[in-house]
Design a protein around this nucleic acid. Structure first.
Lengths: 365, 365
DNA sequence: TTGTCGTGAGTAAACGTTTACTGCAAGGCG
DNA sequence: CGCCTTGCAGTAAACGTTTACTCACGACAA
């Protein structure tokens, strides 16, 4: 018994290779158990191993500073401990918040978060989708809206099919019209509620600065604005081509300054609203006395500008997606959640003074 | 010859498994070549393969829609096609820009970018470092500064050692005082140049809003401020405890409003400068007539606030790091680059009117 | 004719885990 | 006393590539 603690190398056993990395075989050898037993202890599998043996293996692993090779594990499990997040641009705080939501959940379970910036190119989106599938990511979170007209949509659909056949879980954070779990916001409702809020403040002549042209999100937000205006019997034709960045907001505001000012402006994003806000101010317009301005997002800087905005649950979108990907519930192909949003009233919007006049006119008339 | 196109299965050959995934063996079989040859064609290795054979394999791969299993490849290559980026918080535009720089380069070579938010916790930083090492990332980019006092520094140092023994390349984007390639900015020079610029504008009483307490970057920036003030014979004691966010800027400005206003304020980050700026304005101070304000970073919103700031090459920091990680040059253990920064003068700083008076006083006196 | 070389292709051994089987005691039961 | 569980642990076959060797074959010089 004594002196035979270390058996000679079995086939499969191996001392530390040239890389110097200690492998599970080294741990097994030191603990005097088989590779299988060592694996069962280290991988935390629910498998009957005597407590004494378990402890011996743990000790050996700790002595040797054993670090499991995740790649080898991934090979047999057919799955890496990674979650891919496909977004427009990490530099955009909207996407950054989503990514952060994913990452926080991922970190808790020792998952790694892969960021994929597409710059809203459907081709790049597909390329990344493929890359993540090839990487055997545990999950893929696709966060951008789609371009209903894009020719790449067909390929995208095929990739979704392929994903559903594989073990990697797909979540979509915007209505992509594909068979995949979706965690969304009701974009139509977002602008409807915001528009109603402004109408409620007495504004009648409301301008809308559109989102990025062709994007599904933009389309739906535009619809929401139109519908809310229509239900109040107002004219929804005061629209400006836009985008989600600062510049489009600036350009729209510059146009407004040349004509009769609107009572209020809704921009499809906070950034665009910042552009509108600063440009109007530079043009001598007092906000909110003359014009109310509202954005969508409630990003970190909205508070700084004291901007009224629609708060979007960006972080939660990401966090929920990650939770489902990592979670143990069985796959739910018809999983679909809509998260609520709400108006955050701040200083860039106020009661429309001229509305008082209108009311009086009505009363008098 | 005819009818024998498909040889029977050799050992190692295998039809599509339950996962339905086509493997290289399937391609080899269809092309009527060995696994090795198929591998040599698909992996693009520089190895003599006849053009006809090469084409046959390519065709087979394309017919079967073969997608190589990156995990298996990674196992034998002992390296995944991933780059880890360890940052404070992706939601902070400073880090987002760095991450974007990395990702752009990574994407070009089909590398995946892993984002690791530490929230500036040395413990989390180490945990992620370990995780990335275990993941056999091709490279690790560490972007945050260090806390010279942190007890975790010892473990960090050991991880650096381990990294240097492994094949994964480590780059540090801030002076971490470890044996690793570094791509940095001279933080001392950053504040020195900015302070000199303000002194050049005639400001004498200059306040400094510090960065996050204890962080090496903050310490060096503080030193730079002090040195520039000293060399001009000015008092550098007007310092406010700070941080890199908006709130610390606000708090510092609130304090300033209670006492004699400074001629100018330098904040250790743009965000803090935004806080200073808006709070001073809300307090009735005219910028830049009464007080000049400058930040550090030149982030996306600096332009919106018309903020004078020091432009930091954040994107390039990330891009260069990624290039080196992916690049083919042999490892350069003493690789060390310092990137230049420059002042971006904007509207929040101006010539100090009272300096004219001083000058006249001097002339008269 | 024989030895040498270059070219193109195949064999099989890694890479480091996980896990489906198999095996062996010990204990319960008829 | 034989048989069937049950609890632990070991054997070996995957997982899907890459790559160090080996080999066959034709050309070419000696």
């Amino acid at each position: 018994m004594a002196g035979r603690e270390n058996r000679e190398a079995r086939p499969g056993t191996r001392r530390r290779g040239p890389g110097g990395k200690v492998a599970l075989a080294d741990v097994a050898e030191r603990a005097g158990v088989s590779l299988a037993t060592a694996s069962r202890v280290m991988s935390g599998a629910a498998y009957p191993v005597a407590e004494a043996t378990r402890e011996r293996v743990r000790q050996a692993a700790s002595d040797l500073a054993y670090a499991p090779n995740m790649i080898a594990r991934a090979l047999v499990r057919r799955m890496t401990n990674t979650i891919g997040v496909v977004i427009g641009d990490i530099t955009d705080s909207y996407f950054a918040e989503i990514a952060r939501g994913v990452e926080d959940q991922a970190y808790r379970r020792d998952f790694l978060t892969i960021i994929c910036n597409t710059d809203r190119s459907p081709a790049v989106e597909n390329a990344y989708f493929r890359l993540l599938l090839d990487h055997h990511a545990a999950g893929i979170v696709i966060a951008g809206g789609s371009f209903p007209q894009a020719p790449e949509n067909e390929a995208f659909r095929e990739l979704v099919q392929e994903a559903s056949r594989s073990a990697t879980r797909l979540v979509v954070l915007s209505d992509r019209d594909v068979e995949a779990p979706a965690i969304c916001v009701d974009d139509r409702m977002v602008t409807m509620d915001l528009t109603r809020y402004l109408i409620g403040l007495g504004h009648r002549r409301i301008a809308y600065v559109e989102g990025l042209t062709g994007l599904s999100t933009s389309l739906r937000r535009g619809e929401g604005f139109a519908r809310a205006m229509a239900e109040a019997g107002l004219d929804a034709s005061l629209r400006y081509p836009g985008g989600f960045g600062i510049e489009p907001g600036r350009a729209a505001a510059a146009l407004m300054l040349r004509n009769e000012l609107p009572d209020a402006v809704i921009a499809a994003s906070d950034e665009a609203a910042f552009g509108v806000l600063t440009t109007l101010q530079q043009g001598g317009v007092e906000i909110p006395r003359q014009v109310s301005v509202a954005g969508i997002d409630d990003n970190r800087h909205a508070q700084l500008f004291n901007l009224t905005t629609m708060r979007l649950p960006t972080y939660d979108l990401g966090a929920m997606a990650a939770k489902w990907v990592i979670g143990d519930e069985p796959s739910a192909p018809d999983y679909r959640v809509t998260l609520p949003c709400r108006v955050i009233p701040r200083g860039t919007t106020s009661w429309n003074a001229s509305a008082d006049k209108r009311k009086e006119d009505l009363r008098a008339g």
